[in-house]
Amino acid sequence: MRFSAALALLCCLTGAAHAAPVNHPDAHPKAYLSLIIDDLGQNLPRDRRVLAFPGPVTTAVMPDTPHAAEFAREAHKAGKIVILHMPMDPATGPFAWHPDLPIAELAKRLSAAFKAVPYTSGINNHEGSLMTAQPEAMAWLMAELQQRHKFFVDSRTSARTVAAAQAQKIGLASVSRDVFLDNVRTEQAITRQLETAIKHAKKFGSVVMIGHPYPQTLAVLERELPTLKAQGIDWIDIKQMIGVRSNQAMAAHGKDGVYR
């Protein structure tokens, strides 16, 4: 009996040892991921595929699209976070911001864009490589968003962006993009970018991805998103991600949590 009991205990301990996870020294104890899909509002049947994603996707709706208001209402009804995908230079159109515009005109265009896209919780920039490098305009924008109780996502379309830095200076709820999924529009390339995002989340603790409603992107995400949990990834919404990061810059975007 004693031998049997000892053997059983030894087997249990051996099994437990084999079952214990082995953490890589570079692995982060938590791995969070947030997903934003840009350029929505142009094509309802296509864009509705985004609403069927099995998790808290953030829908970034362009104000100068034919279905902006309708899609924003559908996304809100589906429980998805809606943000304004604000056109900025070199983007064009009636809402677009340009460096030569006075603040009064920027304010007018921003208000019109918010009216075009209902139920918004925040904003991110569409293009904007020139505009997000303008300290005065970005400082004004962050103060305006704070008054409107909106958060900001820096799409980081340029290494010269000062947008997130201006948000951080006044304590505006904000976060920055880490990985673009589909600069190259092939399923193979998009899959590789998603794999890169997952590795980033596991190494640094979190990742913010931005993609677009391209057929190739939608196909990859529809196939791969249901596997995230099995890969140890906790898919959270963008508001939760802002809480996770506490407005601090990731290593790629700044130093000691401060945006460059």
Results as ranks from 00 to 15, higher is better:
residue 111 S to N: 11
residue 73 R to W: 07
residue 46 R to E: 00
residue 142 M to Y: 01
residue 121 S to Q: 11
residue 43 N to T: 11
residue 150 K to Y: 07
residue 113 A to K: 00
residue 252 A to S: 12
residue 163 A to M: 10
residue 57 V to F: 06
residue 130 L to A: 13
residue 142 M to I: 06
residue 244 V to L: 05
residue 95 F to E: 05
residue 9 L to K: 09
residue 123 I to G: 00
residue 69 A to E: 07
residue 241 M to S: 09
residue 167 A to F: 04
residue 173 A to M: 06
residue 31 A to N: 06
residue 39 D to P: 05
residue 184 V to F: 03
residue 65 T to D: 02
residue 169 K to C: 03
residue 79 G to K: 08
residue 126 H to Y: 12
residue 131 M to L: 12
residue 192 R to Y: 08
residue 12 C to Y: 10
residue 1 M to D: 10
residue 134 Q to L: 05
residue 196 T to Q: 11
residue 93 G to Q: 10
residue 97 W to Q: 01
residue 48 R to L: 11
residue 2 R to M: 12
residue 83 I to C: 12
residue 74 E to Q: 15
residue 242 I to Y: 06
residue 218 L to H: 04
residue 87 P to W: 03
residue 136 E to D: 14
residue 2 R to W: 02
residue 89 D to V: 07
residue 164 A to E: 04
residue 105 E to M: 09
residue 204 F to A: 06
residue 35 L to W: 02
residue 99 P to I: 11
residue 8 A to Y: 05
residue 45 P to M: 00
residue 227 T to Q: 15
residue 171 G to H: 00
residue 94 P to C: 00
residue 241 M to A: 12
residue 26 D to A: 12
residue 136 E to I: 15
residue 63 P to N: 02
residue 140 W to D: 02
residue 84 L to Y: 12
residue 119 Y to G: 01
residue 109 R to I: 02
residue 142 M to L: 11
residue 218 L to E: 01
residue 222 E to K: 00
residue 3 F to A: 15
residue 257 G to E: 07
residue 38 D to M: 05
residue 14 T to R: 08
residue 135 P to V: 07
residue 164 A to H: 12
residue 57 V to M: 07
residue 27 A to W: 01
residue 233 I to M: 02
residue 246 S to Y: 08
residue 182 D to N: 11
residue 13 L to G: 15
residue 196 T to V: 11
residue 219 A to H: 14
residue 121 S to G: 07
residue 213 P to V: 08
residue 26 D to L: 13
residue 38 D to G: 01
residue 98 H to I: 00
residue 2 R to T: 06
residue 98 H to P: 02
residue 42 Q to M: 14
residue 40 L to E: 06
residue 44 L to R: 14
residue 164 A to W: 11
residue 27 A to V: 09
residue 68 A to Q: 08
residue 18 H to R: 13
residue 61 V to Y: 13
residue 192 R to E: 13
residue 97 W to V: 01
residue 23 N to S: 14
residue 62 M to G: 00
residue 100 D to T: 13
residue 238 I to G: 00
residue 126 H to D: 06
residue 155 S to V: 09
residue 82 V to M: 11
residue 45 P to I: 00
residue 109 R to D: 02
residue 208 V to L: 15
residue 39 D to W: 04
residue 73 R to Y: 09
residue 83 I to M: 13
residue 142 M to H: 03
residue 30 K to R: 11
residue 218 L to I: 15
residue 64 D to T: 03
residue 260 R to W: 11
residue 197 A to D: 01
residue 13 L to K: 13
residue 210 I to F: 14
residue 65 T to V: 08
residue 27 A to L: 03
residue 237 D to M: 05
residue 17 A to I: 03
residue 93 G to E: 05
residue 52 A to F: 07
residue 199 K to F: 02
residue 62 M to N: 03
residue 170 I to V: 13
